[in-house]
Amino acid sequence: MSIVRPALTLFALMTVSTGIVYPLFVTICAQTFFKEQAEGSLIYRTVDNKNVIVGSRLLGQTFVDNKYFWSRPSATSPAYNAAASSGSNLGPTNQDYLNTVQKRCVDWRKQPTNAIATEDKIPVDLVTASGSGLDPHISAAAARLQIKRVATTRGLTIEAITTLVTEHTQGRQFGFLGEPRVNVLELNLALDKI
């Protein structure tokens, strides 16, 4: 029995149905039922009467200003480049990597505004780069470490900022899946609204 003709035609039909019809069908359903998510969970903001995209709820971005909570280190180039995701891929015994982590710790402690007591430990997520380089979250401890700086810079009370951080701390999904976390962009957007 001939093999080539059925193989060719079946390949063509299967490629069209799984490579074109299937993704288009999913796209149509997704755009109909979950438009906001399918487009990348974008957040809009009005600046000078114009509606601009301020980022995605799901993607981290860089913060350097003292009045904001800062994200984790990112290995993309430049940091938090959402068009070229990357992890650092540095191995645990690589001396360059250990030096980098040590320097990050020193930097966190060095700034007087951070006001970290010497006996306080630094949350590990604050000095390590995420897998994607786009991690939108930090741990609750990492957010708490930054409360004093943000409060001082903004001239707000520590209690006010603490309440805001608590409000923005997400627990595990359904109470047991994943890890507790704080979305940095959403927290900072909320800060700007105070």
């Binding site: 040590q102 010497t118 995420s130 401890a141």
Partner: peptide
């Protein structure tokens, strides 16, 4: 380096290089 490696409700702990929170 004075890094918190123990996990609790506020800390991820562990080896977080290359991992998402």
């Amino acid at each position: 380096f004075g890094i918190e490696l123990n996990a609790d409700n506020k800390n991820c702990g562990g080896n977080m290089e290359g991992k998402e929170v």
